[in-house]
Design a protein around this nucleic acid. Structure first.
Lengths: 334, 334
DNA sequence: TTGAAAGCGCTAACAG
DNA sequence: CTGTTAGCGCTTTCAA
């Protein structure tokens, strides 16, 4: 029946004062009754509850937030490109958010999902910040730091003890990728990915280390975006400029790897017989693509939960440490 | 007097009063200067700005929210199962959130991502609600309605004018799926999906209509979860209990379809030669799976933007209507 | 162009 | 078990 036409709230909203007057107690008693504080007579609590229900009382959360100087809300700042091509899910899939949300939910905390731009332009009322996004790094960290709020970062665990970081052990992931390709007898490798991102740089570092230890060579490092098209373009360009001089590829994401495989197949290069390839993330499409993609899985869920737990600890003044999480190698057909 | 133990911010935070004292103006002038109100002398504004910067002033958003009686924040309530199997991205992928976020960002609004449970237990300070999630439906709508906030729903556009709904034209999607299978000469169909969800029920309804119009038959409707395992299990059970009496399948999601294909292949049933199949959503894996899955694409991005625009309109007291969005048929190998 | 007063709705602290 | 007082930090209103 045409409710909803109310702009924000229907009429003047019912306050605790209104309830207090009606029940015949003071508003602090109303507050205590509704908040389940001990030391309110059960009968009183019941009456307050009943009237609150009857009058459609809703707590003014903004008022409470101001009074208590805390919002029980954590901001999650993501990198978002509006482009269709690069879906938000590429570098940081929903399961990372899922892990965060699950943990925050458990603590009865809310989560504000926002971008750096909005975070600056219209700062939300929050108690802490989780920063996702490699591109953002240096810049974004500064901005968040300026906000004065406690924060944790998803990314590469560098030596900087100034900020708390949670992330996969990317160096080790790179080593595992190298080991696989070496095991397949490959000696001449190519790396695909944007190494300006610390996480990616770490993957390459681990990869290189193992190659060096085993006398294999890195023929090229191609900087390409995280997408399938990025991988396809980079590999296509590589194949067109010179005769193929490599037999192993390590891609910084599964999307890149899948694009690269497509380019290889278009150029009549057999995968994995002529060129073996390892991706990263173990995305769903890694299982379904042809041939099935060997990849390095990150534990997004757990990562999200860790991020949430750490930011909650920080907001409660507890000590917190950075943490690198193990990755899992998934050998498939490539 | 131990102000609040301030777990959140380090020292006592700088307030507008502090700035006012230091600059030698009243706090309201500080407020106006920082908010770029006209009618503040430029010199004054500059001084205020400088001191604010120097002192590391940060606006107390909670206080502003209380005073202004609005938060510039919209809650997005999602259905979240903690289970690994059913990823959050299944029914409502990140791109829907992306669309919402993009539109809210543009209006300098923040977005609280939350679940129904948290929304009830720890209501966030918001001006409106976007409700995602078919499972939630009746129940969740009631709960949100009780909150007294304006809201819009992603889902099926039913006749109910009480609430504003945005969603794909699921009925038409069902018709398109039927047309494809009929075009391939199929006459005996199976539907896979949980029809208690209104959206799914709509897909089935459109599907049935077309079958009836063309004298084809619906042999079975199997209720299964949205996952690959759900589709696999349902199809496997169907194949085991009786001789195969169908040659076309319409699945309520791509994940279900991919699971069903696997079950068919395991039972030595050729896809699409013996059984053709159509999915829904046009997920990335639809392109990569073997054989490539025919599907019905939903315009998530646009849907998210519409949801956001409508809830903003509602919170500003503007009239708003429900809207069904066109879907796009993607014929592939199945 | 600036300021004084008031108060948004709630809850912590202390008294009774 | 309940109440009084005070005030969180900001912005609206009205006055100068």
């Amino acid at each position: 029946m045409s409710r909803n036409h109310s702009p924000v709230q229907s009429a003047a909203r019912v306050t605790m004062d209104d309830l207090a007057r009606e029940v015949g107690v003071s508003k602090i008693t109303v507050s205590r009754a509704l908040a389940d504080h001990p030391g309110v007579r059960e009968a009183t609590r019941e009456r307050v509850r009943a009237v609150a229900e009857a009058r459609g009382f809703r707590l003014n959360v903004a008022a409470r937030n101001l009074r208590q100087q805390r919002t029980r809300t954590i901001a999650v700042v993501i990198e978002m490109t509006p482009s269709h091509d690069r879906s938000m899910s590429e570098p940081y899939p929903l399961s990372l958010l899922g892990g965060i949300l699950q943990e925050l939910s458990g603590a009865a905390y809310n989560m504000v999902l926002t971008t750096m731009a909005v975070f600056e332009r219209a700062p939300p009322a929050v108690d802490g910040v989780i920063l996702l996004g490699q591109g953002l790094y240096e810049d974004a960290v500064d901005k968040v730091q300026k906000s004065g709020l406690p924060y944790v970062i998803w990314g590469s665990v560098d030596g900087n003890e100034d900020h708390i970081t949670v992330g996969s052990n990317n160096v080790h992931g790179g080593r595992l990728a190298a080991d696989h390709l070496l095991f397949l007898g490959r000696r001449a490798m190519v790396f695909l990915g944007e190494t300006r991102h610390l996480e990616i740089a770490d993957r390459l570092a681990g990869f290189k280390t193992r190659l060096a230890e085993n006398g294999a060579r890195l023929m090229a490092t191609l900087h390409c975006p995280f997408t399938e098209d990025g991988g396809h373009g980079a590999m296509k360009a590589l194949l067109e400029t010179a005769p193929r001089n490599f037999d192993g590829v390590f891609a910084a994401s599964d999307a890149i790897a899948i694009g690269a495989i497509r380019a290889l197949q278009e150029a009549q290069v057999a995968v994995p017989d002529e060129v073996a390839i390892v991706g990263f993330d173990d995305a769903p499409s890694a299982v379904h693509c042809q041939p099935a993609l060997t990849s390095v899985r990150q534990n997004w869920d757990e990562g999200g939960m860790l991020l949430a737990r750490k930011i909650l600890d920080l907001t409660h003044g507890r000590a917190v440490k950075s943490q690198a999480m193990p990755v899992l190698f998934k050998a498939r057909e490539t």
